[in-house]
Amino acid sequence: MLNALEVLTTVVVGVMVGVEFSVAFVINPILDKLPDDSYLSGRAHGGRMLGAVMPVWYIGSLVLAAVWAVAGWNDGGAGLVVTAAGLLVVSVVMSILLLVPINNRTKNWTPETRPADWKEQMNRWDRFHYVRVAVIIAAFALLVAARS
């Protein structure tokens, strides 16, 4: 049973990492090359769509890692799993404090309603997101290492 939990947790976190990595290094750079109105519409739509899914995914990943840490407490990789769970906590806190407030503003912008500093706000979100991606990649790597 523990083995199945380890695999499920690793896959769920790994797919989350893939999605967030692609947002940072594939989707947003593509959108950045579009004209401002199309760029803004694409980012707003992505903010609405992923903003609805990612909270469940982040919290679910954290819960799975925490359950793994408790269930596998006597295993050799427990310290790695606990550290990974800690990093997932950091990613959730970062999301709530730094990224979600920006996303909540930007997801409803239109070319007519965007503020004068809209590009700066998008760039700030991107910078925070790069850090969050690094944090969840580290958590994923620790989970993979804990399975070895």
Rank of each mutant, 00 (worst) to 15 (best):
G79V: 07
M16D: 08
A44E: 02
I96T: 09
D36A: 15
G14E: 02
V70F: 14
V133K: 00
F21Y: 12
N28W: 12
V23H: 01
A24V: 05
L88I: 10
F21Q: 03
V56I: 04
D117W: 02
M1F: 07
L98C: 15
G14K: 06
A65Q: 01
D75E: 07
R124H: 13
L99I: 15
D75A: 12
G86H: 09
E20V: 10
G60L: 02
V92S: 00
I30K: 11
G18N: 02
G86V: 00
T9M: 00
W68Q: 05
L64R: 01
V90H: 10
G42K: 00
D117L: 09
P35A: 14
F140W: 11
L5V: 01
T113D: 06
W109M: 10
L99A: 14
P111E: 14
F21W: 02
A78L: 03
T113M: 14
I27W: 00
V133F: 04
R43F: 11
T9C: 01
A71R: 03
V63C: 03
S38K: 14
A24S: 09
G86A: 01
E20S: 11
M122E: 01
P115I: 06
E6M: 08
N108Y: 08
A84G: 00
D117Q: 12
V63N: 08
V70G: 11
S91A: 15
E20M: 15
V19D: 01
L97N: 09
N104P: 11
A52F: 05
D37H: 06
P35Q: 11
A139I: 03
G86F: 08
A78C: 03
W125M: 12
G14R: 00
V53F: 03
E112S: 13
D37Y: 02
N108L: 10
E20I: 11
L99Y: 03
V100P: 02
R114I: 03
A141R: 04
V17K: 02
V92I: 11
D117G: 03
T9Q: 04
V13C: 04
A116R: 14
P115Q: 00
G46D: 05
P35G: 12
N3F: 05
N28A: 13
L50A: 04
L97G: 07
H129F: 06
R124V: 13
W109C: 01
V92H: 08
Y130D: 11
V93K: 07
L97Y: 09
G51H: 08
V11R: 12
A69P: 07
L34R: 10
A24T: 04
W68A: 06
W73E: 04
L98M: 15
R43M: 13
V56E: 12
V100N: 09
A141C: 13
A44D: 06
L64P: 01
L87V: 12
R105F: 06
N74W: 15
M16T: 14
F25P: 05
V81N: 02
H129S: 15
